[in-house]
Design a protein around this nucleic acid. Structure first.
Length: 712
RNA sequence: GGCGUGGUAGCUCAGCUGGUUAGAGCGCAGGAUUCAUAAUCCUGAGGUCGGGAGUUCAAGUCUCCCCCACGCUACCA
């Protein structure tokens, strides 16, 4: 249990080059949000910071591609992130960004301090440089032939065909993916953090939680996969790591440091310090002091992240913080695993995702339905699965049938029997209670409720959010059972006093649910409060307040109070809605290019050179394109071969809109026998590359080429 | 390839240091009920615990081998 005076919670900074999807939510945001909402209700001093990670080569490249500035790219996504987080109810105390001046200053100060303390060593190395693009190339942006298997599209860090990990210099015939030019090797100098120097204390800290003679955390509280991966790294031996890059979009290495020209801080020095600069900005905005949150031992620092970020947050960032000397280390890093979508990995580039903003546009008002299903299926210890069918079942069977129904039953009956007034009751009367042969009293039932609330709290403290959510649903289930066992709709005719006890308990349960749902489903919490005609849950002490009342057998909702009229907390989700979403997912995926999977297609039988020379393949440009009527797949194309224009019918309509094809350079076979297709004579065939998924791509010259050129 | 994590009922998952007939929620079947969004409540069926070998009086739980999924593999962020 965490007894620290204050809590600082961070969620991984999302990278500003694509919109927010459900995988992000499940990974680092919902869990953190539950935790901080709960801690606030426990009267804890908790600050929750996050922001957009806006630097790096990927953003420059994206900007070039879209013909806008890097700032415009990050502005766009920063705004999208903010909107998505806000709409889905992630309750940051501040959502900041790494392009902010205060962040540049903070990370530069950090770099300066480490440099002054002699924590860096400066080394020269040779790296691939793209002369045309005028920049050094990250591994990922170099392609070439794999030295191990001969695959021609291997990346500088890994061959995706044979899986071997590579370094760019091993590639045969390397090519820059930025310019398609051959890169040159060029000398460059960088600052390295000597991680190997910190290995022994890092190991002790990870394995025992001890640092400099004091115990900072209990490693058995950390998740297995987190400790396991750290140990794996430590066992492999840590090595120095470059803290700078040759980039043009990022935080400058401080000017006064020699050799800083053109150098930017690498993400290790940039992004995690974003947590610190965000805290600084929050303190400025709120008239607080940021330093205790990062420097006082009485602060619990917790990083919520996805599993891909474990080493970063458990070894490298702590090493940086410790090297600086004034900072505390995280007390826990509850990393989540990944969420798959309908059986496949979520992929931004393949457009296989449920985007948070789109979800909310399509299913307005259903914030908590998504939160509920994502939390229920949170990948806390292993990868989990999002399916639309599963989402529908969870909403209909659990939120509607169990939770909303219970609340509705209580509200309807209270209005019916007591005109909405919470009834006084006789505490000596006995009622039927679930799970026990013996009848119970109102006060024992309040204690049971207290225990369930405690359980829920304990699970949240242990980062076991799925179990905590289950307890919430158990409260609602037990409420349903109490109604069922005591049948107020029958008893009202024979024993009105008994019904008052039952209904009062029901109302206490509903009130408790308004508190219990708050961390998980804040929108629902507010709706329940409205149904009860009560104030919204007080973030400062809603939970402790409830626990205190319950163990003193004080009512959560007072007799004599008048509640509101009934309305549905959740509505059923229809089969049609689910079908639409599934179709949308499948359709949008098809439009995007799909990555080649390299399953070899058998090679056709050998032909002679003469056979090959019989083919006449030429370059051409599409002049005009239109859909062929009564055909889904066909486009009628007019192509310019330089020496003549031709009509060709091509089966590419599923992948290209006619408008986008005009001016497109292609290759075509020009001596293929003419053939009538759908009544149109087709004179030739456009060459297309087809991948395993059946997705097509044009084969065309890399740069502008004269029409009619021979291809051989 | 190496390392890490995981592979338990139709689905999603619990099962701590090995010990009675392996659990929950949802789905499914039968019954009860009508205050409630064809909701609720009760009862029940369902698993050779990824595969194989071993240690032990006793293994889902320990050891070894194999298979599968995911992550990391140290300059994509």
């Amino acid at each position: 249990m965490n007894l620290k005076k204050r809590i600082l919670v961070t969620s991984a900074l999302p990278y500003a080059n694509g919109p927010l999807h459900i995988g992000h939510l499940a990974g680092a945001y919902l869990s953190a949000d539950i935790y901080v909402r709960f801690q606030r209700m426990m009267e804890k001093d908790v600050v929750y910071v996050c922001g957009s990670d806006e630097h790096g080569a990927a953003i420059t490249i994206r900007a070039q591609k879209d013909g806008i500035s890097p700032q415009e790219v990050v502005d766009k996504y920063h705004q999208e992130f903010q909107e998505a987080f806000d709409r889905i109810g992630i309750s940051f105390d501040i959502y900041h960004r790494t392009s902010a001046p205060i962040h540049h200053q903070t990370s530069q100060d950090f770099f300066r301090t480490l440099n002054d303390k002699g924590e860096f060593i400066q080394e020269e190395s040779e790296q691939y440089y793209d002369e045309k693009a005028e920049q050094f190339l990250a591994d990922r942006y170099i392609k070439g032939i794999c030295p191990k298997c001969g695959y021609e599209e291997a990346y500088g860090d890994q061959c995706e065909n044979c899986g071997s990990s590579l370094s760019p210099t091993e590639l045969i015939d390397p090519i820059s993916t930025l310019s398609n030019e051959k890169p040159i090797l060029k000398k460059t100098s960088h600052w390295y953090l000597q991680l190997d120097k910190y290995e022994s204390w890092l190991r002790a800290w990870i394995e025992t939680g001890e640092l400099d003679g004091s115990v900072l955390h209990d490693p058995t509280d950390w998740k297995n996969h987190v400790v396991g991966q750290c140990k794996s790294w430590l066992d492999g031996g840590l090595q120095k790591r470059s803290m700078t890059r040759d980039l043009d979009w990022g935080v400058d290495v401080p000017q006064e440091i020699e050799g800083s020209k053109g150098k930017k801080l690498y993400v290790w020095m940039d992004a995690p310090i974003g947590y610190i600069s965000a805290t600084k900005q929050w303190a400025l905005d709120n008239g607080k002091d940021w330093e205790p949150y990062w420097k006082d031992n009485d602060t619990a620092l917790i990083h919520f992240i996805g599993k891909d970020n474990i080493v970063f947050h458990c070894l490298i960032f702590p090493a940086i913080l410790k090297a600086h000397g004034e900072y505390i280390l995280p007390i826990n890093v509850p990393a989540n695993q990944f969420v798959n979508l309908e059986g496949r990995k979520i992929s931004t580039s393949k457009n296989w995702a449920v985007w948070v903003n789109e979800y909310l546009d399509d299913l307005p008002g259903r914030e908590d339905e998504l939160r509920y299903y994502m939390i229920k299926n949170m990948p806390e210890t292993k990868d989990s699965e999002f399916t639309w069918k599963g989402y529908q079942e969870a909403v209909n069977n659990e939120l509607v049938n169990n939770l909303a129904n219970f609340v509705n039953r209580v509200v309807v009956l209270t209005n019916k029997y007591y005109e909405g007034v919470v009834p006084e009751f006789d505490a000596d009367l006995m009622i039927e209670v679930p799970g026990d042969e013996m009848p119970g009293f109102h006060d024992t039932e309040m204690l049971t409720l207290h225990d369930m609330c405690q359980d829920c709290a304990e699970y949240i403290r242990k980062f076991d959010f799925r179990s905590a959510l289950k307890v919430v649903m158990e409260v609602s289930s037990r409420g349903n059972q109490i109604l069922q066992f005591n049948e107020p709709w029958k008893q009202i005719k024979v024993d009105e006093d008994l019904v008052k006890v039952v209904m009062n308990i029901g109302l206490q349960y509903v009130k408790a649910l308004s508190v219990l749902t708050y961390p998980f489903m804040p929108f629902t919490s507010a709706r329940i409060s409205e149904l009860l005609n009560e104030d919204h849950i007080d973030e400062r002490d809603g939970f402790v307040g409830m626990l205190n009342l319950l163990c003193e057998d004080e009512p959560l909702i007072q007799s004599g109070h008048t509640i509101g009229s009934a309305s549905h907390l959740f509505d059923r989700i229809s089969d049609e809605t689910i079908e639409e979403q599934v179709n949308k997912l499948k359709k949008s995926e098809k439009k995007e290019g799909v990555k080649n999977e390299n399953h070899a297609i058998p090679v056709k039988e050998t032909i002679s050179f003469d056979d090959f020379m019989k083919l006449d393949i030429r370059t051409a440009t599409i002049k005009h394109a239109e859909k062929v009527k009564k055909a889904d797949k066909l486009l009628k194309l007019i192509v310019d071969l330089g020496f003549e224009e031709r009509t060709v019918v091509s089966g590419i309509a599923e992948f290209y809109d006619p408008q986008e094809l005009e001016g497109k350079e292609v290759s075509m076979i020009v001596n293929l026998a003419p053939r009538k297709i759908k009544g149109i004579e087709s004179n030739g065939m456009i060459l297309m590359a087809e991948n395993q998924k059946g997705v097509l791509s044009f084969v065309s010259p890399k740069e502008k080429w004269e029409n009619g050129s021979v291809i051989r």
